[in-house]
Design a binder for these strands. Structure first.
Lengths: 205, 205
DNA sequence: CACATATACGGAACACTGTTCCGTTTTTCA
DNA sequence: TGAAAAACGGAACAGTGTTCCGTATATGTG
């Protein structure tokens, strides 16, 4: 609600000193390093590896993220934000149908990269309990606006809930068997074709 | 294929010495202790805790199960076997409809107790790759025979794949939100009611 | 029954985690 | 310029899984 993207600062009030430049720089480096390491080695990667890749000491990691889960959560939120923010950008750059399909691909890639994170989410650790709601809060409006715009333009059917679509893709992207990434893409394309079926300029009948 | 239940011995060939009694006793105690601890604390419980509960040293655990995952796999296989073996037992003790519904409840309880294990399965550790196929190999025939018997008796519709039902229950039992165990039971009952709908002695029309 | 030996046991020791702590360094601002 | 606040770095701690080997014991034989 208060920090959606960009630099992260706790407060901007009448405090005399502002956040030190090196602190902000290290925080950014940490988030970037963590994102890369999590994508490569999963969320169980050692903290020391992330610290080394970011070029900082271990103490610095724990200064910014008191618990290991705080770092995971920060990366997750940042990636959710990036995915959500992609929606208006795509809507401005493409026609409604293309914007919708491109965003779905974007979302699919996001989910597919979150293998290990899904396991962490359901691990029972209460630290992660806030993530699903954040996921919904940011992504549902993003997709809903794309859906509404596309429906208004007559390229897809209206009246379809963004939540259902998000959940469907998330489940489809799960690698239960050794089905490659092709599978997820085909299923998402199929879902979109389903939305296009029966679309028309006038929503009624 | 070779050891379905009961005592576990690697070979029974012409070897002069048979398995030492204390070894077998400790192995049984370990499996029992591991099952209890996994159910209580999840599959991430410390090995030392299991060793202590079984009344053996840590070295003994690793003598029987060289890797931590071997112990998890052994417990899992044992519980899958128990669930699969319950099918013919229930079929012999109850009428087809009752046997089917009781087994589904039994299976639901099995799945519901495996929270942490599901996370381990999808952790990418190749040691667990054999488990899903074992799961299918043992459980699909068990449920299929119950389904066929019930269909032949006319209490449920025929032509329903056991695999789909197993997967559906496994997904429904997953605690994505904070829905209690009641939710899983209601959904399973609903699935069974669905199977009963339109059932009759003659499958055609 | 006594004994020799393969077998199994137990737990100290090792390697590697996440996390805490505090002396040192750097940045900020008067 | 200088002092204080802020942040840094990494040694040290606590708790994992795993290995190793001296010790204890069950087994089969004379």
């Amino acid at each position: 609600m208060d920090d959606t993207a960009g630099e992260i600062r706790p407060e901007d009030d009448g405090k005399p000193r502002r956040v030190r430049a090196d602190a902000q720089r290290n925080l950014d480096a940490l988030l970037r390093a963590a994102m890369a390491v999590f994508a490569t080695s999963g969320v169980d990667a050692p903290v020391r590896e992330i610290a080394e890749k970011a070029g900082v000491g271990i103490g610095t990691v724990y200064r910014h993220f008191p618990q290991r889960s705080d770092l995971i959560i920060a990366v997750f939120r940042q990636e959710v934000d990036a995915c959500a923010d992609a929606a208006p950008a795509l809507a401005a750059a493409h026609d409604p149908g293309k914007a919708l399909s491109r965003w779905m691909r974007r979302y699919l890639d996001f989910i597919a990269a979150k293998r290990g994170l899904a396991a962490a989410l359901h691990s029972g650790d209460p630290a992660y309990e806030i993530l699903p709601s954040y996921f919904q809060k940011r992504l549902v409006p993003a997709l809903q606006s794309l859906l509404d715009t596309a429906a208004a333009a007559g390229v897809v059917r209206g009246g379809f809930a963004a939540t259902d679509l998000l959940r469907a893709v998330a489940v489809l992207a799960a690698p239960s068997q050794e089905m490659g990434p092709e599978h997820g893409r085909r299923m998402v394309d199929l879902l979109l074709d389903g939305l296009r079926y029966g679309a028309g300029p006038s929503p009624g009948a």
